[in-house]
Design a protein around this nucleic acid. Sequence first.
DNA 1: CGCTTATATAATCATATAATCATATAGTCA
DNA 2: TGACTATATGATTATATGATTATATAAGCG
Lengths: 110, 110
Amino acid sequence: MPKTALTPQNLDSVATRFRILGVPLRLQILNELANGERTVTALVEATGSTQPNVSKHLSTLLAHRLVKREKRGNSAYYSVSDPAVFKLCEIVCGNIERALEEERAAFSGG
Amino acid sequence: MPKTALTPQNLDSVATRFRILGVPLRLQILNELANGERTVTALVEATGSTQPNVSKHLSTLLAHRLVKREKRGNSAYYSVSDPAVFKLCEIVCGNIERALEEERAAFSGG
DNA sequence: CGCTTATATAATCATATAATCATATAGTCA
DNA sequence: TGACTATATGATTATATGATTATATAAGCG
């Protein structure tokens, strides 16, 4: 199966998805969900944000199918729908590390 | 070597980097640079945007070390500094494909 | 030195969106 | 049913930032 790459056609969708991930609180939510499903309340506590704000970001994540939602009893349980997002974060972290190293080298070395 | 993952400490940097990638024109520029170094003028033509706009986005990309810049003669040659970004785009494309497939399945099947 | 070309940058404007606040909906349990 | 808990959502505000315009800087070339 060929890997799907960036094309003029999918530029917007790809950019949109990156933008979804470009909000610290949303990453924080995803990072928390990495440990398993969580209720909104649990995420509010974990992130230190407000309930409406967390709910809103969950809606966004849900709309783009980055998370799944399951209602049980009184609570809504959210979980990551595609674990590949964490691979993304790993790569970005690697990117940043290399960029910082370059910067350091440029500062020290010339 | 352990992969660097998302942590409470690096959340902001990671989010910032995602946001940098969340702009279609910037992705378009990177996509063009995937074929090798390009001058600003070449990127202006390839993207159909204006010169100041392309220059500004290149500045942003440069500031975050997503691209390198080399001045030769009258022109500035830009190139991708860390090819791992394309891996990111591939993964995101895969994400989107799966999300769309889910959506389709949800529509048809349940 | 002007003239042209290539690139960068400052100022402004327009827009998207994150946070907040208030409120609505929905489920549980007495 | 009424009270409580959990979650969602609409309206508003504040802010960040992308696009545009005009202009500045810099390099080549006659």
